[in-house]
């Protein structure tokens, strides 16, 4: 048992050291933007709280196991009958309640914080990028710039980026660990993820949610550039890259692995994303037939979307 205790305390110490002490290289704890930073701080805070719980339990455990083993008691020792103790039991109910309450406050605050545009960036107009997945690649459409990329995405530093996520197949999860936590991309609705990169650099992004055979290869590069470099890159793509035709896009969707691509137009025009009137699960895939059938319960879901321009260019207006 002694060996085991030693082992446990070694494991425990090494975890605390690795996670909090030496500002490690672990991606999640090496944030490059405010969202990931909030999350890394939350994680470190929770580790410290939990370390306290573990220390208490492990100390009690070691005391009980060393003090009350049969080999240390006399043969005729009869353990007493003890029902319990109201105050002790209340104590170890109350203390966890307090710990959970503290963690809850932190969780609720940070959960709201990471859903919103990060603090300090609210005044800026976010850059909207539609990130859609298909088996097994990522398409990035820049409606304002009118360009589209595959399997890489360039963003300017110190500007909020609003990723609008959806999928052309299985549920995927858009994740750039060093910039912030992940969110699902699904076929029938848009999910939004706000990220900001504060440092220039190249960050690995990936699909985190299992989506079939090519899942392991579904990675992309996020290149965070200075605003100047970013504008230059956009202009480059506009001038040099070919237009994305509907036919080309359909070929892309059908091809398993395509490598990196750049285009000087987006697919949003001929293949609108599932938002507004196109949101699938609210009223079926074929919204026209639903409307014609005049189903009442569907109508109330549509009202706020009525009159919305369905052409791709309208999506620009969501930016502000």
């Amino acid at each position: 048992m002694k060996k085991k205790r030693l082992l446990l305390s070694l494991i425990f110490i090494s975890i605390v050291m690795l996670l909090s002490g030496c500002d490690s290289k672990l991606a999640v704890l090496n944030p490059k933007g405010p969202v990931a930073k909030t999350q890394a701080n939350t994680i470190i805070f929770s580790i410290l709280m939990m370390a306290f719980v573990l220390i208490v339990v492990y100390i009690l455990y070691i005391i009980m196991l060393t003090k009350y083993r049969a080999s240390k008691t006399s043969d005729d020792y009869e353990p007493p009958h003890i029902e319990g103790n109201k105050w002790l039991e209340l104590t170890w109910t109350a203390i966890p309640v307090i710990i959970v309450a503290i963690l809850s406050v932190v969780t609720v605050q940070t959960t709201y914080a990471v859903e919103k545009v990060p603090a300090g960036y609210e005044d800026q107009k976010p850059l909207v990028i539609y990130a859609s997945s298909s088996d097994w690649k990522w398409h990035f459409s820049y409606p304002e710039e009118g360009i589209e990329t595959v399997n890489y995405v360039n963003i300017p530093t110190n500007r909020p980026v609003e990723f609008r996520l959806y999928s052309y197949g299985p549920i995927t999860s858009f994740w750039v660990p060093q910039l912030g936590g992940q969110k699902y991309a699904m076929t029938d609705m848009i999910t939004k993820l706000n990220l900001v990169a504060e440092h220039e650099g190249s960050y690995l992004g990936k699909n985190a949610n299992f989506s079939g055979k090519g899942f392991a290869k579904m990675e992309f590069e996020v290149q965070a550039q200075s605003p100047g470099d970013y504008t230059k890159w956009v202009n480059d793509v506009k001038q040099t890259a070919p237009k994305l035709t509907e036919q080309e896009f359909n070929t892309l969707l059908k091809t398993d692995f395509v490598g990196r691509k750049s285009y000087s137009s987006t697919h949003l025009g001929f293949a609108p994303p599932p938002e507004g009137d196109m949101a699938g699960h609210q009223h079926g895939g074929d919204s026209k037939t639903e409307k014609d059938s005049g189903s009442e319960n569907m109508d109330h879901m549509n009202h706020d979307m009525s009159g919305m321009d369905m052409s791709g260019s309208s999506s620009m207006e969501h930016g502000h």
Partner: peptide, 24 residues
């Protein structure tokens, strides 16, 4: 001791903001 360790990591996972980084 092992289950307690697993349990406290569960509490960490329960925190939604942090879970965005642990999920999957």
């Amino acid at each position: 001791p092992i289950f307690t360790f697993g349990g406290v990591t569960g509490v960490m996972l329960a925190m939604a903001s942090a879970d965005y980084q642990y999920h999957n």
